[in-house]
Simulated scan of single mutants.
Amino acid sequence: MRFADRTDAAERLAEALAGYRGRRPLILAIPRGALPMGDLLAQRLGGELDVVLVRKLRAPFSPEYAIGSVDEHGWTYIAPHAHGTGASDRYIEQEKREQLAVLHERRNRYTPGRAGIDPAGRVAIVVDDGLATGATMVAALHAVRARGPERLVCAVPVASIEALELVRPYADEVVCLHAPPDFYAVGQFYRTFGQVDDEEAIALLRQAGQPPAQPS
C-alpha cells in the first residue's frame, strides 16, 4: 500500500475512524507533518483540531534515528537501544533540554497564551503520518492519557510492526492502515512526502479556530 500524499492518507484514515463521527472527537496532531492530516480528520469526523507537542530524542551520530522522546512537560521515554547508539546519560540529558526548548518555543507560537485543548472526558485521537520506531507516539499518548480522555486512539496510515507493538499499551485503540514487514522509512509509503513548515502549521491552526501568533 502506498499513499499519494498526506491528504490521501487522511481520507483513508477518516474512513477507518468513521465510527467516531458525531462524537466530536478531539484530533491531536503531532507537528508538523501530521497537522494537514489532523485538519482533514477533524473536518470529516466533525471534530476539533489541536496539537500534542512532543519531540524525538536523536541518536548522537544519526539524528533521524530516535532513541526516545519527550513531551512538553518533561516526561521522557528512553528506548532500550538508546545506549547502544553511543548515547550516554549526559548526552541524553542535553538532548532532552534541547528538545524541550523547541517544544516551549512551538507552544508559544502555535497556541500562545494557553495550553492545549483539554481532552478530559472526550474521545482523543492522536494522529501522525507514520511510525518508524514509535517513540514519539509513546510520548504523545502518555501526555494525552495523563489528562483523562474518555477514549484514547492512536491513528496512523503506516507503521512498522515493532512500532505498533510498542505503542499498543499506551492507547485504548490503535488504527493503522498498513503495517508492512519491509518497513524502512515512513516516506517510502508516500508518492509525495514534502515537509510541512511552521507557517503552514500556524495557518492550519488559525483556520481551525485557534489564533496562534505569527512567526517572528
Score class of each variant (00 low, 15 high):
Met1Cys: 10
Arg2Thr: 15
Arg2Val: 15
Phe3Met: 01
Ala14Ile: 09
Ala14Pro: 05
Ala14His: 08
Ala16Met: 01
Leu17Ile: 06
Ala18Pro: 08
Ala18Met: 02
Tyr20Cys: 07
Gly22Trp: 05
Gly22Val: 06
Arg23Ile: 00
Arg23Leu: 12
Leu28Lys: 04
Pro31Glu: 06
Gly33Ala: 11
Leu35Gln: 09
Gly38Tyr: 05
Gly38Trp: 08
Leu41Asn: 01
Ala42Arg: 00
Arg44Glu: 09
Glu48Phe: 05
Glu48Asn: 06
Glu48Gln: 11
Leu49His: 00
Leu49Tyr: 02
Asp50Thr: 04
Leu53Glu: 01
Lys56Arg: 14
Ala59Ile: 11
Ala59Asp: 05
Pro60Thr: 14
Glu64Arg: 08
Ile67Ala: 05
Ile67Met: 06
Val70Met: 06
Glu72Cys: 03
Trp75Ser: 12
Ala82Ser: 12
Ala82Val: 10
Thr85Ala: 04
Gly86Asn: 12
Gly86Gln: 11
Ala87Gly: 10
Ser88Gly: 14
Asp89Trp: 13
Asp89Glu: 15
Arg90Thr: 14
Glu93His: 13
Gln94Gly: 07
Lys96Val: 15
Glu98Leu: 14
Gln99Lys: 15
Leu100Met: 11
Ala101Val: 11
Ala101Pro: 03
Leu103Trp: 07
Leu103Ala: 08
Glu105Gly: 14
Pro112Ile: 10
Gly116Trp: 13
Pro119Asp: 02
Arg122His: 11
Arg122Lys: 13
Val123Asp: 07
Ala124Pro: 00
Val126Trp: 04
Val126Leu: 00
Ala132Trp: 02
Met137Ser: 05
Val138His: 07
Ala139His: 03
Ala139Tyr: 08
Ala139Asp: 04
Ala140Tyr: 04
Ala140Ile: 07
Val144Phe: 05
Val144Tyr: 00
Arg145Gln: 02
Pro149Val: 03
Glu150Ala: 15
Glu150Lys: 15
Cys154Met: 07
Ala155Thr: 12
Val156Ile: 13
Val158Ser: 05
Ala159Phe: 07
Ser160Asp: 09
Ala163Arg: 08
Leu164Pro: 10
Leu164Met: 14
Arg168Thr: 12
Arg168Gln: 13
Ala171Pro: 03
Asp172Thr: 10
Val175Ala: 05
Ala179Gly: 11
Ala179Met: 08
Pro180Lys: 12
Pro181Thr: 14
Pro181Val: 15
Tyr184His: 15
Ala185Ser: 14
Gly187Asp: 04
Gln188Asp: 13
Gln188Leu: 08
Arg191Gln: 15
Thr192Cys: 11
Asp197Ile: 04
Asp197Val: 08
Asp198Gly: 01
Glu199Asn: 05
Glu200Lys: 07
Arg206Met: 00
Arg206His: 08
Arg206Trp: 09
Ala208Thr: 02
Gln210Ala: 08
Pro212Phe: 07
Pro212Asn: 03
